[in-house]
Write a protein that binds this DNA or RNA. Sequence first.
DNA 1: TATTCGTTCAATGAAACAATTGAATGATGG
DNA 2: CCATCATTCAATTGTTTCATTGAACGAATA
Lengths: 218, 218
Amino acid sequence: MTSQQDLFDTLAQVARALGNGHRLALLERLAQSSAAVETLATATDLSIGNASQHLQQLRRAGLVTASRSGKQMIYRLTDERIITLLALLRQVAETNLAEMERLVSQLFAEDDASEALEAVSSRELLAALERGEVALLDVRPADEYQAGHLPEAINIPLEQLEAMLDDLPRDKEIVAYCRGPYCALSHEAVQRLRQLGYRVRRFEEGYPEWKAAGLPVM
Amino acid sequence: MTSQQDLFDTLAQVARALGNGHRLALLERLAQSSAAVETLATATDLSIGNASQHLQQLRRAGLVTASRSGKQMIYRLTDERIITLLALLRQVAETNLAEMERLVSQLFAEDDASEALEAVSSRELLAALERGEVALLDVRPADEYQAGHLPEAINIPLEQLEAMLDDLPRDKEIVAYCRGPYCALSHEAVQRLRQLGYRVRRFEEGYPEWKAAGLPVM
DNA sequence: TATTCGTTCAATGAAACAATTGAATGATGG
DNA sequence: CCATCATTCAATTGTTTCATTGAACGAATA
């Protein structure tokens, strides 16, 4: 016979797997696409061994699965809902922890608060896309764009922004997006494009959240 | 200047607060209603001191707030979304951890699988209520019912089930609910009422989830 | 003012976790 | 089949967490 407490304890094991900054960073990277250990270690600035151990904790908690492909071990999220879970955790934290708000505003150095206020929500974006009012700009590296992106999005990795301006329409408003709300790429892109006179705003989420919400991707 | 990693670390602190079975039990109790430390300690089978410490960890993580009322310290959830967060965590765990499934089925001792299969979802329940097809039965203790319940629900605490059968309509199907998916009260009620010949099913969630979903409560 | 009650604080020891190191495994390519 | 590469395992150290104890605090009551 089991007690309710055993269930809570097991549930707590899953939550504890989320209770480490490095593991959250790994999950965020995995939300973009599945990847090998070395890729993940590089992306999160961990040693290979350390990344491997953290990944195995995530695996024990049922949050990721691993499969061998030749020499490499490919990790992936077990469930799209994990992205939603992380997004909800973020929302709860931002609402209830003053510390979070401070860190977020520092990360984006918002002396210019206008940019944050003007971020486009999923709902707004979806409506604007249907009316053909905006052009979508994906500023992530090309390989992440390849692994999946929003429909109709143009890919210009941030490093090549100025070099590839010809791909951008001048007559429409542009909405830039990247990996998620804590990813600085689209922030940077908006600032640089505005200086060049473009009408551009930032999508307040990212590719993973869009996909996890069940919205169409390519 | 802040790095993205600082944000993940702060987020991880919140997740870590969820990473303990006792704290999850405390949150589950708080999802019913706000309560004093002693009440919470009793409900979760913790010593007062221990409960107090766990509550303060939850407070540091921004998940609960405390306010003094006379001699007592009343704790409450800071945010309805925490209930949604817990529900999502539960779903992810149940889907991806075999261990969870095993524990859940053990908890409810489902030799009779029919009952589980026939659990009523929120959507179904809402529709059935609108059409006046079902009667709602709240089998939680009277004080929890007082603190809030589903609209039109009849309260018969489980201990008084047989004594108060007159309150139940015989012509409608009955849907019983309690504290949440891991609460055994409604399970027990369904079994006992079925033996008495009632047509009765179990609501697959509980009062807190209903409320957190923004559905009407009384 | 002294007392009581509910709660919190501080200190302790036991257990779990994080990062590092170096050895071991499993698949590939010469 | 030997060498190589990607990853995992095992052992170690320092850090954090958990539960318990007893003292301290703050609000109510006598």
